[in-house]
Design a protein around this nucleic acid. Structure first.
Lengths: 252, 252
DNA sequence: GATGATTTGTTCGTATGTATC
DNA sequence: GGATACATACGAACAAATCAT
């Protein structure tokens, strides 16, 4: 039966150069990456099926899969079993500076921001957290595990520690207000700034990937920061994990 | 002939659980990751060959390759054609500040900094570079590919574009002086500042990994920046790739 | 809700190329 | 040069998830 998908996407596909030291799967990946970059394959759009691509490039389906795996590794596409392979959205520009607010950034990008409280507990601060907050080792802190979304897409997840007793029941305020800034407001903190920020990168564990709705092993930007209130008191130590596929940090 | 490699590493290999929804390659990867983590397979040591592992786990060599690919993605092992597959060394961490010159930062840390010129060419700027430098599309630029080391350990590699004709033969100055700052000095630019900086993260390609002497797939911090001279003229657009295993960015 | 078609995921088999020792 | 070991590619089959009917 004739089907629209049998018609090649490009009328004249340039043939692969075989036996010149450049693997076929690499040439296919480059060709597809170019079409994504040029917009010929729009963000969110579906790629042709593996079988269709194999036919188009004149190779085995394995070879196409190798090319698609390379694109998925670069974060350009994402495959879902039973559905297909889709072009990923370009990452959201996320300004990071002394006064950046997650909710403001996302709202300014025309998307709706919300933070989910995934869990909270009171515990004795570990050495690293105590030092970051300027507390005695073992001082009590409230620790929250949160996830931050823009229009239902998780952008980051964070583990935040705040000193007690000043911020007792901060987690309840956060759960109600969905924003650190608003929760601080409820505790009389109208202004806060970043004291220090460290940025690294690593691959997501299975658990982190599940929280961010990404595949395990996808790259994360790790942002470790300390916030101070208007009087210079350290009020918050946070370890944030941003999906590098969805967020790009803009340094100010 | 009997060979040491014919003797199983573990005398009693627990059989793979088939048909329980957990892919065989995943179970093999988990088993090997456990042996690496426990030190049974020491850092720098060689893994059994793919054929030996296939025999040990009772699977096809493809299945072992899938497991090894997963370990390589996580940075636990590194395969070299013709030699074998080896356990990666534990990563070294190295901090670097964002607002300082690379050479100054490294020197202040008590290490010797040098930049290698890996290649250079004159070409017409692509759309992105032209916009970053404030040039007309297609304007001529000199593009350099560089690698930056601290005490012989590669920390980053970069692709830098500078406008022509102002910076003609900049690559020769860079090759001689080993530093952007010093090369700019040779062109009468005594001061320059960062106009914008974007930070992302992704996995290293094979080529990038080779330049940085890391395993392909290891995380990279991508830093895209534009520099301006003392009069605000855009003089340099750079895409830097830092090995996230060796560098953590510190924002002040 | 059940079924079948579609599409990606996994596995085995086989062959050849290429780098290293 | 030969042996070894990883890299690439093709072919076939079935499993698993999704979606339209």
């Amino acid at each position: 039966m004739a089907d629209a998908r049998d018609i090649p996407v490009t009328p004249s596909e340039p043939p692969l150069r075989r036996g010149e030291g450049l693997a076929a799967w690499r040439q296919i990946a480059d060709a597809l990456a170019g079409e994504i970059g040029s917009g010929a394959l729009p963000a969110g759009g579906q790629l042709p099926t593996e079988a269709a691509l194999a036919k188009r490039f004149g190779v085995n389906r394995h070879t196409v899969r190798r090319a698609l795996a390379s694109l998925a590794e670069r974060g350009l596409v994402r495959a879902t079993q039973g559905r297909g392979t889709f072009v990923e959205q370009a990452p959201l520009a996320y300004p990071i500076g002394p006064r950046t607010r997650f909710s403001e950034t996302v709202t300014r990008a025309g998307r709706e921001a919300w933070g989910d409280l995934l869990g909270a507990r009171v515990l004795a601060a570990d050495a690293e957290t105590a030092e970051a907050l300027g507390l005695a080792p073992g001082a009590a802190v409230v620790e929250m595990l949160t996830r931050h979304r823009a229009d239902d897409t998780p952008l980051s997840t964070a583990r935040t520690s705040l000193p007690l007793p000043r911020f007792a029941a901060f987690d309840a305020a956060y759960a109600r207000l969905g924003s650190i800034t608003r929760a601080f407001g409820a505790f009389g903190v109208d202004d806060y700034t970043r004291l220090s920020t460290r940025v690294g990168a690593r691959a997501a564990s299975a658990e982190e990937a599940a929280r961010l709705d990404i595949a395990p092993g996808r790259p994360l930007l790790t942002v470790t920061s300390v916030n101070v209130d208007g009087r210079g008191q350290r009020i918050q130590a946070t370890q944030s994990l941003f999906s590098a596929d969805r967020v790009e940090l803009i340094l100010e």
